[in-house]
């Protein structure tokens, strides 16, 4: 019997991870970024041109169409700032400002990030815990699931101030009230994803455990949990993005003085559109990095588990 003589063809020709990443991800991403920039530049001109023309008319000095065109990209308070204005502001408030300063975007970003991470951590644990309870008890499935679903139909903007006020009244201040709102948003996708994941083993895999007379804790650790891992990471990607949104939203109606949400709020008070947009970009960038980190963890765990990706 020489059927096994097929020598282990251990991925000898697998391209280097980085070059593969460039080919598979970087090129399409850059193409999309380029398209967005073009649309943005056009929109900047279209949205700003009326205001800028009025301003130039009032100044009284004659101007050419070319000068008007260029001027729409360098306005003090544009309706829509141009990409390079946002980039400049981002650079100035991150690299160009000491991180201890109240004007540093890194400082504000860290405030938001820390409550995002704490809230996400609690939310993930809560979500997993609820899922385990739901999968192991029909009663809890029937009684908990409707509450979990309806919890997400309440607008977060409406309950965020209440959570903060109640938490403050109970003496919980600082990071935690904000983190609770991240928890509120992130436990849901994790709970739903984990319930699906823990129920994903097919009948044959469960029957196998039954023939071994495995206890339900053995079935959980050796079958349900490993089967749920891909579902967990998918829902964690949603959960971490929702956590960030939660942290920012928590800063908006509560008069927070620090954090990306506070920057957005202050920017809109004073008509600082450049500041608003750079805070938005910082938030988007942070979300992308956080999701990418979860994605990387996902890949590492899958590789460890030997699951073909």
């Amino acid at each position: 019997m020489r059927t096994e003589a097929i020598a282990p063809l251990r991925a000898a020709h697998r391209p280097h991870a980085v070059s593969r990443w460039v080919a598979e991800s970087a090129v399409p991403v850059l193409a999309v970024v380029g398209a967005i920039l073009v649309v943005w530049m056009v929109a900047t001109y279209v949205l700003n041109v009326t205001v800028q023309r009025d301003a130039l008319d009032r100044a009284g000095t004659p101007y050419t169409a070319g000068e008007l065109f260029l001027a729409t990209y360098t306005m003090e308070r544009p309706i829509l700032p141009s990409p390079h204005q946002v980039a400049q502001e981002l650079w100035k408030t991150t690299v160009g400002t000491p991180i201890t300063s109240k004007r540093s975007l890194v400082y504000h970003g860290w405030i938001t990030l820390s409550s995002t991470l704490v809230g996400f951590g609690i939310g993930t644990l809560l979500g997993i815990g609820l899922a385990v309870l739901i999968v192991h008890s029909r009663t809890l499935d029937k009684s908990l699931m409707p509450w979990i679903v309806s919890s997400q139909t309440i607008p977060i903007l409406a309950i965020a101030p209440m959570i903060v006020v109640v938490a403050n009244a109970l003496g919980v201040t600082g990071l935690l009230p904000k983190a609770f709102i991240s928890t509120y948003l992130s436990f849901f996708p994790v709970a739903v994803g984990m319930v699906t994941g823990l129920r994903s083993p097919d009948r044959l895999h469960l029957d196998l455990m039954r023939t071994y007379t495995a206890t339900s804790s053995q079935v959980f650790w050796k079958l349900r949990l490993p089967a749920a891992v891909p579902f967990l990471f998918t829902s964690m990607k949603v959960g971490i993005a929702a956590s960030l949104v939660g942290a920012i939203v928590a800063e908006l109606p509560t008069g927070a003085v620090a954090g990306l949400g506070a920057r957005l709020l202050a920017g809109s008070y004073y008509g600082q559109t450049v500041q608003i947009w750079s805070a938005l970009f910082a938030a988007a960038l942070m979300a992308a990095v956080l999701v990418a980190i979860v994605g990387m963890l996902d890949r590492i765990v899958r590789q460890r588990m030997g699951i073909r990706s």
Binding site: L208, T211, L223, I307
Partner: peptide, 11 residues
């Protein structure tokens, strides 16, 4: 019991 399908755990 040997099932009709292998039923190996992929991980």
């Amino acid at each position: 019991y040997v099932f009709q399908a292998p039923a190996l755990y992929p991980w």
